[in-house]
Design a protein around this nucleic acid. Structure first.
Lengths: 317, 317
DNA sequence: ATTATTTTTGTTAGCGGTAACAGAGCAATT
DNA sequence: AATTGCTCTGTTACCGCTAACAAAAATAAT
């Protein structure tokens, strides 16, 4: 592997000139700059990040702290990770995964935190001195990236209303976190706007529980009914319930999910859902964090993505 | 952050002594060793990996090269990654994700490669000079970690036979790779042993395609029938097919999957499947790779995991 | 032409660690 | 007592890179 010195020798300049061409090209005369570029190309020079890290007192490592039980959201995180990885690679950072079980956080230049619960702020986050970006909305003033959860739920509820169904139940996850509150709000407001009674049922994020709950409802129901769910996983449960009872989707029962990652396409029929652009959001998390690091921890604000309504056969034919 | 020098100063020894306590403790007298340990603890000393990387001409980075389209196997990889991450963290390595689209591999100390196809050996792998571990069996002599695919398929086929079903179809993935050939073999051999006719149908790894195929079969079938599938995803498709035709699982139709990651539990009924201990396998990949790096690229051999049969309601009541 | 100013390039030192060698202290061998 | 050999500890130099300073060259001001 070629080093700075190799390039310098080849271009017959000092190491420093080469370093400048890389970091402050405007400080070097056009002539030498070209010479250096040429030598770099010929030697296939790639800077040694360990050396850079050492000089700058950096680690070139960022950590992804996953505070959620991983198997509740597996497919989701893979996409997030993919997005993060793309961005980090470009900027010569590498990644470490940390879960709740790792007892020490260890050295890094910054963290992306996901699956945060209210109680984690005190326990985990407040001790950290590195720059942070949260994946998921929060009211504590930390920079975050999320989708517009309220808007998403409004869109999907309206979609149901536009398809002539008035009896709409909300199936949500039993967890007191901002993202859930926003989704509930989106549903509630839309229903109230149309003078309809919101009916909210919160449960564990499990397809089997949703199925169980939905079967109870469907057994005694005889009108057209819709379930807007706060996750695709719950949506799948409702689909199963309808099928077990021999009901037709979407004619008797309409179902929608939320997330639009993987599970929505596994369902039969495929789920109408709100897609979150997770890969993009992952990229943004990384981008914000790296910028924050470069700017010495300066606040970066939030990035809220527009959700996308994906219409499938669980609500239309 | 405390450095070697800080520790040395506090213990009133030279930097070298501290370094020795860390790397070759037997070379230091018990007395000084204790002193140094004490100072390290008090200062909360953690070695700076950038500095270590620099002296050893290492990067402390390993790359995970994912050559498969990610959305075909999403949930699967998240677990693999989790396993890899645990091991890497312990040994102070960090991770970079690389996909086919990244055009250059970049600096690293070693790679774990997954989703490799025959054609990739020449294109990608043979150029690399870093140590490699493959995730997934191969006949080219590269070190790998995998589950015993043949054995797994034998187990699940026998399980069906033991439950009194003789008509067993195999649904596999249309891909000419060792893991698939082994799964086919496992099924074929078991069937032949019992003088039964193997029936193999290969298709894209999609639940909807499997559903389509299975519906065709089930429409004209009137005996008890079983589908052993080479993935949970295919298994889910078959479940959907049976349900659409109003057939009872497992009385009319038995279904099994393969992988046992996530999807098996989403199905209704849950799938009997062969579980791969992916997290463990991920750890092993990392462990083998790091050992290989330490041993200057020496061959490490293969690690083949025993598959586990998970019996659920898609084959029993 | 001489001095002051700016631009461009080179030199030095150090980031935190380790390998290789050198030296000190002490016991065993002759 | 002198030599040899061992164990333990310290010194030096360097891994690849960059900030800070110094020097040289080019330009402007007097």
């Amino acid at each position: 592997m070629a080093t700075l010195s190799d390039v310098a020798r080849k271009a017959v300049v000092s190491k420093m000139t080469v370093s400048r061409v890389i970091n402050h090209p405007e400080q070097v005369s056009a002539e030498l700059r070209q010479l250096v570029y040429k030598s770099m190309k010929e030697l296939n020079y790639v800077p040694n990040s360990a050396a850079q890290a050492l000089v700058h007192n950096r680690t070139q490592v960022i950590k992804l702290l996953i505070l959620e039980e991983m198997d509740t959201t597996e497919p989701y995180y893979m996409n997030l990770l993919a997005g993060i990885a793309i961005e980090l690679d470009q900027r010569h950072y590498s990644l470490q995964l940390v879960t709740r079980s790792s007892h020490t956080i260890g050295r890094c230049d910054g963290l992306i935190v996901t699956g945060m619960r209210e109680t984690d702020y005190d326990h985990i986050i407040s001790h950290l001195e590195q720059p942070l970006i949260l994946f998921g909305e929060n009211k504590k003033g930390y920079d975050y990236v999320d989708v517009d959860n309220k808007k998403g739920m409004q869109m999907v509820t309206e979609h149901i209303l536009n398809h002539g169904c008035q009896k709409i139940l909300f199936y949500g996850i039993e967890i007191d976190e901002p993202f859930m509150r926003s989704r509930i709000e989106g549903y509630e407001e839309t229903m109230k706007m149309k003078q309809l009674l919101p009916q909210i049922n919160l449960m564990k994020n499990s397809s089997h529980i949703a199925q169980f709950e939905a079967e109870k409802v469907l057994q005694k129901n005889h009108e057209r009914i819709a379930f807007v769910c706060a996750s695709d996983r719950l949506g799948i449960g409702v689909v199963h319930a309808a099928q077990r009872l021999g009901l037709n989707i979407p004619d008797d029962v309409m179902v929608t999910g939320f997330d639009g990652v993987f599970l929505d396409r596994i369902a039969q029929p495929k789920l109408t859902t709100i897609r979150q652009p997770i890969v993009e959001m992952g990229k943004t998390c990384a981008k914000l964090l790296l910028d924050k690091i470069d700017q010495d921890g300066m606040k970066q604000g939030n990035r809220i993505y527009k959700p996308e309504l994906i219409i499938r056969n669980s609500t239309t034919t």
